[in-house]
Simulated assay, not measured.
Amino acid sequence: MIRLHHLNQSRSLRILWLLEELGEPYEITSHQRDANTYLAPASLKAVHPLGKSPVIEMDGQLYSESGAITELLIERFAPDRLRPAPDSTDYGHYLQWIDFAESSLMLPLMLELFTKKAGIHDNEFLNGYIDKEKTRLFKYLDAAVEGKSFIVGNQLSGADFMLSFDLMMLAKRKELANYPHIEHYALQLASLDSYQRAMRLEADYDETNRT
């Protein structure tokens, strides 16, 4: 049995969706962000030294980092269905997009979030970097998903699960309107049954929805 330590409004959403798509038995232990600091609670530090989510328990072992968990679960339960064959030309692109989601694309999004929460509005260097980098990355992704329902090989893969959290952030900030291909791609992912089930679970477990 897989146990997901799930933190509301976090990268754990990637793994929640993946588990719903895999259809393997799993359990959820819910953790809630601190209402004032928006940080993870102490209960997660009791699970893993970094105190972050997602973390899964499987075969008596703890695993962290959403990218690693995504690849691990797919290799174990759905290698033929949710990733390209390693000897295919798509495989390298698959790995590239998995890393892109948590490295290149995530950096300016998190910088923007942190600067706003810190009340930094007039730092010319930071604001200039964030705006320029976001525009460059969004144009790149928009071109990459033009005419596509999925990012690699016209089939659902781990790269789509990884990009999904980034797209949720962009949709929440209403930043997809100028990038129609990303918007279409995001809506296509959101239409999948497993995605919708995961979002209902997220809503059920997110206590901020009940305040």
Rank of each mutant, 00 (worst) to 15 (best):
His31Ser: 00
Asp34Cys: 01
Ala35Asp: 06
Ala35Lys: 13
Asn36Phe: 10
Asn36Ala: 14
Thr37Leu: 04
Leu39Met: 07
Ala40Ile: 00
Ala42Met: 04
Ala42Asp: 01
Ala42Tyr: 08
Ser43Asp: 08
Leu44His: 00
Leu44Pro: 00
Lys45His: 09
Pro49Val: 00
Pro49Ala: 03
Lys52Ala: 02
Lys52Ile: 02
Ser53Trp: 05
Pro54Lys: 10
Pro54Trp: 06
Val55Gly: 07
Ile56Tyr: 05
Ile56Glu: 05
Ile56Met: 06
Met58Cys: 07
Asp59Trp: 08
Asp59Ser: 08
Gln61Phe: 10
Leu62His: 07
Tyr63Arg: 10
Tyr63Ser: 05
Ser64Lys: 09
Ser64Phe: 09
Glu65Thr: 10
Ser66Ile: 05
Gly67Tyr: 02
Ala68Glu: 09
Ile69Thr: 02
Leu72Asn: 02
Leu73Pro: 04
Ile74Asp: 08
Ile74Glu: 11
Glu75Asn: 15
Glu75Ala: 15
Phe77Asp: 07
Ala78Arg: 04
Pro79Cys: 14
Pro79Arg: 09
Asp80Ser: 14
Arg81Glu: 15
Leu82Ser: 05
Leu82Gly: 05
Arg83Tyr: 07
Pro86Gln: 10
Pro86Leu: 07
Pro86Lys: 14
Pro86Met: 08
Pro86His: 11
Asp87Trp: 04
Asp87Gln: 06
Ser88Phe: 15
Ser88Gln: 13
Ser88Met: 12
Tyr91Val: 09
His93Val: 11
His93Asn: 08
Tyr94Arg: 10
Tyr94Met: 12
Tyr94His: 15
Leu95Asp: 10
Asp99Met: 12
Ala101Leu: 12
Ser103Asp: 03
Leu105Asn: 05
Leu105His: 07
Leu107Arg: 13
Leu107Ala: 13
Leu107Ile: 15
Pro108His: 12
Leu109Glu: 13
Leu111Asn: 06
Leu111Gln: 08
Glu112Phe: 03
Glu112Arg: 01
Phe114Tyr: 05
Thr115Glu: 12
Lys117Tyr: 13
Ala118Gln: 13
Ala118Leu: 13
Ala118His: 09
